[in-house]
Design a protein around this nucleic acid. Structure first.
Lengths: 240, 240
DNA sequence: CGAGAAATTGACTCTCGTCAAGATGTGTGG
DNA sequence: CCACACATCTTGACGAGAGTCAATTTCTCG
C-alpha cells in the first residue's frame, strides 16, 4: 500500500513516487501531481523473484505494472513447446497490453524485479482522461515496435556469432551500470537457455559463441553471468 | 486533388472518402464528417507501381499514407546488404511512423498500390486535437507490435517448411479474395526473393519448400505467383 | 562436503546455404 | 506470329553452420 499525504488537496507528489524511476522517465512523468496522488491510491509495489510468472499468455489481464527495477522477459510458445523470447522490458517500461482483453505473451521475471501494479480499469480510464498519458503509452508502443523490428533482422539474417554479439551489445547498452569510460561490466539477466530462446539458438550454440568471444578477447566472463566488455566498439563490430 | 462539396458547413462527408476503405475500418473512421472535410483538403490520392520506394530508411518523413489497395513491404538492411522484411501493410493500414523525425524502415510497393497521402504536420496536429484518432493510431501500433512478435516466433523457432507454410497462411488470410468456402485463391504480392527476405531464407529454399507443398497437395501453383489453397486447415497444420 | 542445476565441450547429423545449370515465363522487335 | 533476350524461378550437387546427443566441468546451496 502507498503512503500518501493526508491532505489530498496538497499538490505535492506522493512520497513513494518521489524517488520512483517511472515518475521521471516512465509513464507517470506525464501526470500532474494531483493525478499522481489519485492514482497512487490504487497502486501497489511488489517484488518478484527470478522465474516468477507475471502474466500468462491468453489469460485475462487484471493489472498493468511499471517495471521499477530488474528485467522482465516476454515469451511466446508453440504448441510443441518451442519457445521464443519476443521482448525484454527494463525500468521504467510499462508492462501489459492496453485495450486487449487478454495477453498475447507471457511475462516472466528474468531477474529479481520490483513492480508498481496498477489495476487495468484504473489505467484505462486514466488513458481516456489524460491525453499526455495516452501519448506516452503510444510512444512506448512505437518504441517497442521499432525494437521488435530491429530484432527481426537479427533473428532472420544474422549468424549465430552475430546474434550472440548483438545480444551482449543490447544488454551492455541497456544496463549501463558500472561504466568507467568504455569498459562496461554487468550481470546477464538471462540464463543461457533464455538467451537461446531470445536468439533462436540452442544453449550449446550460445555457449560456444560466448567461449569464442572470450577467446578472441572481446569479452571476459566471470561466474557465467558476470561479463566485462573492455571495448564496446569492438563488440559492436561483431554484430554484423 | 480531392473533390469536396462546395459548402464546407455541410456535414456530408467528401465524395472521395465515401467509397474509401480507410473511411470505414481505417483511421479516418474515427473522424467526424467535419474533420473529414477539413482533412480531405490536404490529402492526395496516388498510385504507385510495384517496386517503387515509398519511404526510405533514415530519411525525413514528409507524409503519411493510408494504404487503400495493394500491399506495402517494410524492410531493413544490414551494412553488407543482407535484407529483412519486417512487416507487410495492407489496406486500410496507415503507413509512416508518427512522432519520429525519420523513418527507421524503408517502405516499398510490393504490388501496385493506391495511397492516400496526408502531410506529416497535418496528421500530427490532428492527433493532438482528436483523441479518437490518436486512439485509433495507437491501436494500430499495438496490433503491429503483436504481429511483429508473432513473426519473431516464426523467424526464430520454425523450420524452413513451417516458415513457408506460415507465410502462405498469412497471405491467404489477409487477401481473402475469391474465397468459395474453404478454397482460397490469390496472387502472391511478393517475389520469391522478397518471401525469402521476409522469412530469413534464400530463394532456393523458398522454392524447394513451395514445390514440396505442391507435391503434397497442400497448394496448387499456376504461373509462379498465382496460388490456390484447397484446404486452409491443412495448410494451417504445416505452420508448426 | 556433496547433490543438483547450469554451463561447457566434443562427436556426429542434418538442415539449409552456396554455386551452377536448366526451365519457364514475359516482353520486344522483326 | 515467331524468335530472341532477359527476368524469375526451379532443380541438383555439395558443403558449412547450427542442432542433437552425450559426457564432463563448474558453480550454487544446503
Amino acid at each position: 500500500m502507498q503512503t500518501v499525504r493526508k491532505d489530498i488537496h496538497n499538490s505535492d507528489i506522493p512520497l513513494l513516487c518521489q524517488s520512483c524511476e517511472a515518475r521521471h522517465q516512465g509513464i507517470c512523468g506525464s501526470l500532474t501531481p494531483e493525478q499522481l496522488v489519485a492514482v497512487s491510491k490504487s497502486t501497489r509495489r511488489v517484488r518478484r523473484a527470478p522465474g516468477e510468472e507475471l502474466m500468462a499468455d491468453a489469460e485475462p489481464i487484471a493489472s498493468f505494472a511499471n517495471v521499477l527495477r530488474g528485467v522482465v522477459k516476454l515469451t511466446k510458445v508453440l504448441e510443441d513447446g518451442r519457445q521464443q523470447v519476443v521482448g525484454l522490458q527494463f525500468a521504467p517500461d510499462l508492462l501489459g497490453r492496453p485495450f486487449a482483453t487478454e495477453s498475447r505473451v507471457s511475462a516472466e521475471a528474468a531477474s529479481e524485479v520490483d513492480l508498481c501494479l496498477i489495476p487495468k480499469s484504473v489505467l484505462e480510464s486514466m488513458l481516456t482522461e489524460s491525453a499526455p498519458l495516452e501519448r506516452r503509452v503510444m510512444l512506448q508502443a512505437l518504441r517497442e515496435l521499432d525494437e521488435a523490428r530491429d530484432w527481426m533482422v537479427t533473428l532472420g539474417r544474422k549468424s549465430a556469432a552475430e546474434k550472440v554479439a548483438s545480444f551482449l551489445y543490447l544488454i551492455a547498452t541497456h544496463i549501463d551500470p558500472t561504466d568507467e569510460g568504455e569498459v562496461t561490466t554487468f550481470d546477464l539477466p538471462l540464463s543461457r537457455a533464455d538467451i537461446g530462446d531470445f536468439l533462436g539458438l540452442t544453449i550449446e550454440t550460445v555457449s560456444r559463441q560466448m567461449t569464442r568471444l572470450k577467446a578472441d578477447g572481446v569479452i571476459e566472463i566471470h561466474n557465467y553471468r558476470h561479463v566485462t566488455v573492455p571495448d564496446l566498439a569492438r563488440l559492436r563490430l561483431r554484430c554484423g
